[in-house]
Design a protein around this nucleic acid. Sequence first.
RNA 1: GGGGGUAUAGCUCAGUUGGAUAGAGCAACGGCCUUCUAAGCCGUAGGUCGAGGGUUCGAAUCCUUCUGCCCCCGCCA
Length: 561
Amino acid sequence: MKEDIAGLIDSALTRLQATGQLSEDAQWSVSLDRTRDKAHGDLASNIALTLAKGAGLKPRELAQLICDALPASSLLDRTEIAGPGFINFFLTAASNQAIVATILDQGAAFGRNHSGQGRKVQVEFVSANPTGPLHVGHGRGAAVGDSLCRLLQATGWEVSSEFYYNDAGAQINNLALSVQARCLGVQPGDAAWPEDGYRGEYIAELAEAFLRKETIEAQDRVVASSGDANNLEDVRAFAVAYLRREQDLDLKAFDVDFDVYFLESALYESGAVEHTVQRLNANGHCYEKDGAMWLRTTDFGDDKDRVMRKRDGGYTYFLPDVAYHLNKWERGFERVINEQGADHHSTVTRVRAGLQALEQGIPKGWPDYVLHQMVTVMRDGQEVKLSKRAGSYVTLRDLIDEVGCDATRYFLVARAPNSQLTFDIDLALSQSNDNPVYYIQYAHARACSVMRKLDEHGWQWHPEEALTQLDRLEQEHETALLRRLDRYPEVVANAASASEPHTLANYLRDLASDFHTWYNGHKMLVDDPALRNARVALSQAVRQVVANGLDLLGVSAPTEM
RNA sequence: GGGGGUAUAGCUCAGUUGGAUAGAGCAACGGCCUUCUAAGCCGUAGGUCGAGGGUUCGAAUCCUUCUGCCCCCGCCA
């Protein structure tokens, strides 16, 4: 639709060039905006404003010339020149109504496109180390990352989702020591409790399971406990498997899964870390200082150089990070999106710098990052800071158990990643019009309910006939709804390319609102068969778009509530 | 001190990538259920878009300075 109108403007301008009213070397790219105010028509262009100066004309005069030169089109009802020189386009009712046919025809495919052209993209998200249950921040990462995957898939990319975790570093050692202490009856606060030990209740549960010699099956491993608390290696292996399984279950309850689980330890085993060091060294970007080996990341935009190999001979996390991303590049992902908490933002420049230092032809701004800000959980107007099991933070599981998967996902994905998020438990729980999740789902359920009622009346809906009767959709509320539906493909495309799933959440809320307004004001199941057919068709089109959109957010679309 | 993010209605937040009179929801107030689900709808009220300067036909949006809040600045991840 938009392209069609843009094409008309284009030919008008070319015509003006031919008649000499516009200079031969004038250049333009037609921008068309959907209008905010329906008094301004359906689409508006500022083309006359941008070209007026070069043409030596007043914007409104040029606008008039363009309008006069527009080719005739059945799409266009009329044009108006408004304000400083905008051209407003009023579409014919028929061209607005046609969207219903498109939606019913394309069904679940409506809104999807092929702009990704099957190119490979990887989305890495959550990537929590197995040292405890997932917290709300991981939940935000999971909701945003998973929705991003769905959006990229919907726009023609070949998507691989990945979870990276460290199963061997200092934090894991700390975990093992904490579990071991619990096994030996030592509690947080005791003199023998390890420094910086994990104090949560789950450590005690883990210790008990270890002593009971349980066998743990996680997504990527099976580990049987030896029950020997003196063997720290046994404890470590068991603890990692135990917490991996717990995180798996949390993610499953959140309806999120991953194509690949990638272990940091694998980078050591395969020699990738060593290879990366050699490569950086060979390129002359390293130096020794204070007994450590440094990478001169300042050569690549970092604000200070970074240690790669510690004084004790071990590597910092930075080096495996670089090796890991090199590995991603070698796997052929021309696009990689890392979804992480904003507290990791300092790694962005560092990793990119490390990749540049490899001199492998990796693009400067690669990979992409989506960083989400902190989540605050509120209940009864008070900030909730702790969960009993985790000790120091609110777990994702707490939220899912309390408000459900749908509401949790929606709330965590409905805000711009880059803004701090307040998760209001009372709001997420409320089954009222306060709650946008139910508001949107209710729109879907209502449309389904209409079909059931239709059946109860003994009526049939005739889709093919309906498509010839769409001209009966002439109410103002119906026009608004049609215009809204028409926007959906652009919303999906934009949410995917800008990595902003929240814009889709907002759209769905607006769509639901338009639908409820219409539903409340106009009866669908009227006696007039043509009108009834047309309205049911519109209702079904809305149902389809709501279902398609919710699916991209990972939220269910119930048929009744 | 340095870096990043952010600041929009009393509250939670949008704002179609620079467009026309800045929008929703909640909270407040007033209406609508013998009619397809009231988990809904309609109306009223609410603003110096943190502050100053700049860029241009046009700025909440871009640049700059300042202020507040959040995050990071480890040979932890």
